[in-house]
Design a protein around this nucleic acid. Structure first.
Lengths: 74, 74
DNA sequence: TTGTGACTCCTAGTCCGTT
DNA sequence: AAACGGACTAGGAGTCACA
């Protein structure tokens, strides 16, 4: 059985955390220094984001990158 | 001040875990389905690996992807 | 405020090899 | 066993206009 799309899982987690902080995609994108539509694409699981941008996002959200990989249900 | 290279940190972590399992780069690459020279480059911090391959590696090593981002010194 | 398609540029990732 | 290189193709990074 094919495992769930990791990009979608990551995107959902990112979105949850962003919403918890009450940030818009636009605001997050501005802080990270990425394009708003790019961040949106990541949240929707359409982008196969690389480690450097993962860490940039984590830094902007003031969390450890590992947090973005938690609660994936193994 | 520029932060430490996340690719290098990730690569070192990957290498440590791989060594703990007594696996060669070649073996890991074969299990994951990636090229051996590519895995070597990742461990050396030369490659900006994407999330799908990060998760493939974690799966091959039978660990949660978050483990690869631990002990980064916050 | 976010989704989406389309686009260019550059690199992620492959495959061959030598050291 | 691992580092490193060249040449290549697939696909990620980054941007925009418009819905």
């Amino acid at each position: 059985m094919k495992q769930v799309d990791v990009k979608a899982k990551f995107g959902q987690r990112l979105r949850d955390i962003r919403n918890q902080m009450g940030w818009s995609q636009e605001h997050l994108a501005a802080v990270v220094g990425l394009d708003r539509s790019y961040v949106g694409g990541v949240e929707r699981g359409e982008r196969n984001i690389s480690i450097e941008n993962i860490c940039k996002l984590a830094e902007a959200l003031e969390i450890n990158p590992a947090v973005l990989f938690e609660q994936w249900g193994t």
